[in-house]
Design a protein around this nucleic acid. Structure first.
Lengths: 241, 241
DNA sequence: AGGCGCACAGTTGTCAAACAAGTTGAGGTG
DNA sequence: CACCTCAACTTGTTTGACAACTGTGCGCCT
């Protein structure tokens, strides 16, 4: 008998997904009725419906009034990590099956130009940290990334020589500014010529560029990131509805 | 006094978005209480909460028990068309500001190979239609796409020489198989050499490849599509949370 | 016998009222 | 002035009910 344990619609949503998977329900199959599921998960129907509505939006299930709820197209894909789920680049690389290392190519403090200032909602010229890094595995480059972080986040604290080779997400978590969401754009580009020449990345090929502005729980913008994913190494999945 | 008019959580969700926009609420601002909004939109609290939960998932709003609901990071971006919203390539190109024409490069019926059969849930060797097209504007190529469609969808009907230069979505809508959702993967690639040579696409550059399996309302798979978007011409946005 | 219509049970969609849990601020008390 | 208490407010959840829609099976009429 499954139970969501702690409160929260999100756990309930997971519980339903688990049920779908463990019962081996396939596309078109009928789910138990709302009443049955509410009893099974020990919640009320309105609460259950909030969770089901989320699954509906992910195209995992589909409701037909008077008939029931049925497994829809997105069910198979919902197990994989969709691009719409926020996670650090480190986690993303790992989830693609790579055991990657990080090399810090550059680190500096400089005044924000127009683009960066707008993205981070700062005054043009405000000091920002710029971290340029490369993730690679077995000698092959995987992700070239540039991160900008407002310097004021570290205030008077000694950000000095933190381990920029580690996860920036963890660093920000330490000062209570862990990013939890982002607005992102994706496009296909070639790695900039200068970058290729300076860091010997001739083999990189076409890149999937994800530019994102990361927000912490309090709503402040904490990172502007440009991540160039090696085209031949990464693909991302999602549901469209 | 706004009203969702017809039933449906989706309209309610839109109504809340409209309210946010029309009242000019910005990041961090507090929304009216659930009670107030329920009265305003003439729905019950449980119903309203289903809509609010969807906005929460899109990172448009954020709930804090005991305090209220607040505008979150995704609000600004929720107005633009996210990549997660299903739409035809024609609509997508138009929404990027291009007035594009479509050229049919190839059209044939052939047996499904392994990959296509799996994607469309058919027997290997089943007859499928293959449509190869190029969208272009002002002489510049924008999207090179290949679509596979199970031939049995057109049954005994005369699919003969339909206007494949138009929207395939519309064609399928005519036979009650309009695609309404898809599962997609995105990656960055170079256009295949053969395609470049055969259709003079040397200027295409790196491409954003979206592969998607489209589903109709009844859950059947109706299209397997490979759309190569010219990297310099397209970018897509979305919210990660 | 066959076909038609209708009542009925089952399911999702919606609602109203209430309580539980967390937050905030005002007012009283030491 | 500092601290505590409590009431008011807000979101989270539950209960019970009714409305709208779908499919089925039974009885009735032809």
């Amino acid at each position: 008998m499954e139970k969501p344990k702690n409160g929260g619609i999100e756990n309930l949503r997971m519980a339903v997904l688990d049920m779908i998977q463990s019962e081996g329900l396939a596309l078109g199959d009928k789910l138990p009725t709302e009443k049955a599921m509410a009893e099974r998960f020990q919640v009320s129907r309105p609460t259950l419906r909030e969770a089901l509505k989320l699954l509906e939006r992910d195209a995992v299930i589909e409701a037909q009034q008077g008939k029931g709820r049925f497994i829809a197209a997105g069910a198979a894909l919902s197990i994989a990590r969709p691009i719409t789920k926020f996670e650090s680049v480190s986690d993303m690389v790992r989830s693609h099956g790579y055991n990657a290392q990080t090399t810090v190519l550059g680190f500096s403090t400089l005044p924000a130009d127009e683009e960066i200032a707008v993205a981070l909602s700062l005054e043009t010229g405000s000091p920002v940290l710029r971290v340029e890094r490369l993730r690679h595995a077995k000698g092959e480059p995987l992700v070239y990334s540039v991160d900008w972080i407002p310097q004021k986040l570290f205030g008077n604290g000694v950000h000095g020589e933190a381990d920029w080779a580690g996860s920036i997400v963890d660093l920000l978590a330490d000062i209570d500014k862990r990013p939890v969401a982002s607005t992102a754009t994706v496009k296909s580009v070639m790695l900039p010529d200068m970058v290729v020449r300076m860091h010997n990345l001739e083999t990189f090929g076409s890149a999937l560029l994800i530019e994102e502005i990361c927000y912490s729980a309090d709503g402040s913008r904490v990172i502007f990131a440009q991540d160039y994913h090696r085209g031949s190494a990464f693909s991302f999945s999602f549901v469209r509805k």
